[in-house]
Design a protein around this nucleic acid. Structure first.
Lengths: 119, 119
DNA sequence: GCATGTATTTAGACAGGCTAGGTACTAAAT
DNA sequence: ATTTAGTACCTAGCCTGTCTAAATACATGC
């Protein structure tokens, strides 16, 4: 009974928002892919399941557009595991994030009004 | 100066929301495709540009799923122009609309929190 | 060795909104 | 009569971006 049906947010509805989400998650601090995944999953409260296969291509696109920059982190810095690629917002990326937020607000406003759900 | 730059809501961000929008626009009253387009465009305040090439396939999918039903309207009923296909929500469609609204609220809540834009 | 957890990468599938046309009917203009 | 314009519908094929599913690599523990 208490099976708390959390309808997962699927890929379609994420389209066009994922990149802003990634940029936003990098605002607090630089991070590598897996860490971004963890941040988003945590913030998504179980409803959000972004996959590696979505994230890494997105990161590639973002870097290609100059919105983020990456550097490799050596793994000898007192931690186990493989190498990590650390991503960082560029100033261009910060501006885009601002823009993405404005677009998000407009998107919510417009679609929300049509869908007519009580905000 | 007063060029009110309305960034149009593009196809990607509409993904996965369009069907709920269509269902919602049919709630007030039955309508044919063009009328749905007008309703959405009007509600979108200029920011929303849904195309026929998106709507008609969506209507087809919705009908195939039993969420809407259509009937042809003869054109001799005191109006000019070609025949129209009038769409109507089924009870299954009404239930789906409810579900779509719940999912919308959740979507806005989750993504909104991540994007961090002031709601 | 082998399994496990962490981390990255990629090929290919797939969905669905968009482009860009086409069809058809009516009325008004030429 | 023919053209033009407005309304209405339909569709083939494109394109983008998320997902599936697998491979690779490194370190630790059994």
């Amino acid at each position: 009974m208490t099976t708390q049906k959390v309808t997962p947010i699927n890929g379609n509805s994420l389209r066009g928002h994922l990149e802003t989400m990634v940029l936003s998650s990098l605002e607090q601090s630089d991070a590598h892919g897996f860490e971004i995944l963890r941040r988003l999953e945590k913030a998504g409260c179980g409803a959000l399941k972004m996959k590696e296969g979505s994230l890494y291509p997105a990161l590639y696109r973002l870097e290609k557009s100059g919105l983020i920059k990456s550097r490799w982190e050596k793994c000898e810095t007192n931690r186990p595991g493989p190498r990590r690629r650390i991503y960082k917002l560029t100033s261009k990326g910060k501006r885009r994030l601002q823009q993405g937020r404005e677009e998000w607000v407009q998107f919510v406003s417009v679609v929300g009004q049509i869908v007519g759900a009580p905000a």
